[in-house]
Amino acid sequence: MQDKDNTTHFGFKEIPTDQKVDAVAQVFHSVAAKYDIMNDLMSGGIHRLWKRHTISQSGVRAGQKVLDIAGGTGDLTAKFSRLVGQSGQVILADINDSMLKVGRDKLANMGVVGNVQCVQANAEELPFPDNTFDCITIAFGLRNVTDKSKALASMQRVLKPGGRLLVLEFSKPETECLSTIYDQYSFRLLPFMGKIIANDSESYRYLAESIRMHPDQETLKGMMEEVGFERVTYQNMTGGIVALHKGFKF
């Protein structure tokens, strides 16, 4: 969210808007190599269940075309590749070349080839024609985008009529008690784990702060509706720590 002085938030800091892409890029360049390990440790492996549920809500079937934005190390892409089959296509898109390289290597090691293409792309200006994809996902990436409304509008543009967008993202816990516990975990344990495992506490401090700055469930629902998505709903998971938003283009 950016203000009239042309600044935006980077975690809890305010920085010039035109510097955010580079600032976020440095975070993910730093964490790319340990990203999968840290995801498992930080969530206790539960992120795999969140992603599995997202896949189950996608409605993706053989022959379709899927865009996995901020797809990072390719968890969703690998599963979509199997669902669409050789007659379909999955595009793994990420703005960060370090993350994209890790994802490309991981998919190759898994034998996921043929129907997957990797593209370095900014979610705010997706380099695809109108009405291209049957399904678009963005998992744990929207909070790092500078102009979220612009990115959502770009997604709506490249989605086919009848297609759906799935936004999996950290959100606002449903109770104050859970919120307090989560804050202690996020601001104390995450940076410590980042220092021990990835030798980078500051990047994980930013990631914790970026979660707190992300729009809550109802606000994000409204943002999706404002750019043209219809039948927008969301489902809280793990007490609202994570939410899955779903919207359709008609």
Rank of each mutant, 00 (worst) to 15 (best):
L190Q: 09
S171H: 02
G163P: 05
Y185W: 12
V167I: 13
E169Q: 03
R188Y: 07
R164D: 01
L189K: 04
T180Q: 15
P161H: 07
S179H: 13
R164N: 08
L190I: 14
P191T: 07
C177Q: 14
G163D: 02
I181A: 14
P173D: 08
E174Q: 14
Q184L: 13
S171C: 11
R188L: 04
T180G: 05
L178S: 02
L178Q: 03
C177H: 10
K160R: 06
F170N: 05
S171Y: 04
R164G: 05
T175Y: 07
D183S: 15
K172D: 02
T180D: 14
S171W: 01
P191W: 12
S171Q: 05
L189F: 14
E174Y: 00
L159Q: 02
E176V: 11
T180V: 09
V167S: 04
Y182P: 07
L190S: 09
L165I: 15
S186M: 12
G163N: 04
S179Q: 14
F187I: 02
L178F: 15
L168F: 10
E169V: 02
Y185N: 02
G162P: 03
L190W: 13
K172H: 10
L166G: 05
E176A: 15
T180F: 14
L168V: 12
R164S: 13
S186H: 04
E169R: 04
S186E: 01
E176T: 13
D183R: 14
T180L: 13
G162R: 04
I181F: 15
S179A: 15
L166K: 10
F187N: 05
G162A: 07
L165F: 08
L168Q: 09
F170Y: 11
P173K: 05
L166T: 06
K172Q: 11
K172E: 08
L166Q: 10
L166V: 09
L165V: 15
L190M: 15
F170K: 05
S186C: 11
G162H: 04
S186V: 00
F187W: 04
P173I: 07
L159D: 00
P161M: 09
C177P: 00
T175H: 04
S179W: 05
R188W: 07
R188G: 13
I181N: 00
P191M: 08
Y182N: 10
R164M: 08
T175G: 02
E174S: 10
S171T: 06
